[in-house]
């Protein structure tokens, strides 16, 4: 089961893990910036998005 599903991601194991961790890091950076960063400009720009997504705000 596991092997057959893994094979449909066209990457070697090391490439897959590299891509995965890079994706996790960039994704966490973006979500942090839009949702959590304590910058007034970022907060005001993303204000409605933060409320709509239920990020802790204010």
């Amino acid at each position: 089961m596991a092997t057959s599903t893994v094979s449909s991601i066209p990457l070697s194991l090391s490439d897959r893990l590299t891509a995965g961790f890079v994706a996790l890091m960039i994704g966490a950076f973006l979500v942090f910036g839009a949702g959590l960063a304590n910058s007034a400009v970022l907060h005001d720009t993303a204000h409605d998005t933060r409320h709509a997504y239920g990020f802790p705000c204010h």
Binding site: A2, T5, V6, S8, I9, L11, R16, L17, A19, G20, F21, V22, A23, L24, M25, I26, G27, A28, F29, L30, V31, F32, G33, A34, G35, T45, A46, D48, T49, R50, Y53
Partner: peptide
């Protein structure tokens, strides 16, 4: 803009989890 950034962020996190645990 914030929705685009958040969307890309969550999408990368989802893809990252999928790649690391090996379930496409």
């Amino acid at each position: 803009l914030a929705n685009l950034v958040t969307g890309a962020g969550f999408s990368l996190l989802l893809a990252g989890v999928s790649l690391v645990i090996g379930y496409p």
